[in-house]
Design a protein around this nucleic acid. Structure first.
Lengths: 140, 140
DNA sequence: GTATCTGCAAATCCTTTGCAAGTCA
DNA sequence: TGACTTGCAAAGGATTTGCAGATAC
């Protein structure tokens, strides 16, 4: 069973309606390799279904977020990005020069997470963490 | 010489005018223990000088940022925050439950910074990193 | 049939900008 | 004086909301 079906069946289980808009929005999020913004989802959906409104995209994201099916990450720049939880969360390095987003291996941060728990008894939520800086190309 | 005088003399050296608005804006940033937002600066300044406009705050921040006197940090939530560079950097653990802010030891992050540089050739800017999660009291 | 969803338009929040008037040096 | 600054109002982009009509179940 694909993640898409996962999300769709979950919605239906919980009594939410499977409208074409929702299906297309979920599908756009799933198809994306990367984290996707509301605007990008909207662009994809509107191409096949010109009548959708971007407020429907936002409302669907709000629902999926609330149900824990999608995570919302703030990479800065005043635009939120979305990612299906089923695809696993990673952490990101964001280049402030060129905007590149680099996926970060879990292990590097898990040691940080453990250290924070051990030394500060602080349970860090690193799911949405984005670390800003400069990538290889831009720091030359 | 205080940081405030530092900034003021720098502005004047460079030929920028020392208007009362600028003085009050710089002073508000300096007085703040924490990172301060444009809105908060505005609120402080307007209390003493009701005529200021928030666009002046933004323009001053833009200037101070450009001159490298103030850093701008995006802690998420669609609001940028400012801090004088002279006051040094902080790392913070922010409790999402009770709002507590815990100062974080430099050493924990310097090893992360090194690892990122070594393994990703990514030069991380951790000067104003905020890590979200749950503090001791709230994670019980 | 009916409660849930949607489209639309207008509102909100944070930030930026154009322009004419004001002011620091 | 004259270039730099400001205030004002309006624009900007991202997101949210109120409401009446549409639709999945």
């Amino acid at each position: 069973m694909s993640h898409l079906e996962d999300i769709v069946s979950k919605l239906s289980e919980l009594g939410y309606r499977l409208t074409p808009q929702r299906m297309m929005i979920v599908s756009a999020i799933e198809k994306s390799d990367d984290h996707i913004s509301a605007e990008e989802i909207y662009a994809q959906v509107v191409a096949k279904y010109p009548h959708v409104n971007i407020s429907t995209v936002y409302r669907s994201l709000e629902l999926l977020k609330r149900l824990g099916l999608v995570t919302e990450t703030d990479f800065g720049g005043g635009r939120l990005r979305y990612h299906p939880v089923g695809k696993g969360h990673h952490h990101h390095l964001v280049c402030q020069e060129c905007g590149a987003i680099i996926a970060l291996d879990e292990s590097l941060l898990s040691s940080l997470k453990n250290a924070l728990l051990r030394e500060y008894k602080f349970s860090a939520d690193l799911r949405h963490l984005a670390i800003f800086g400069r990538c290889v190309n831009c720091s030359k």
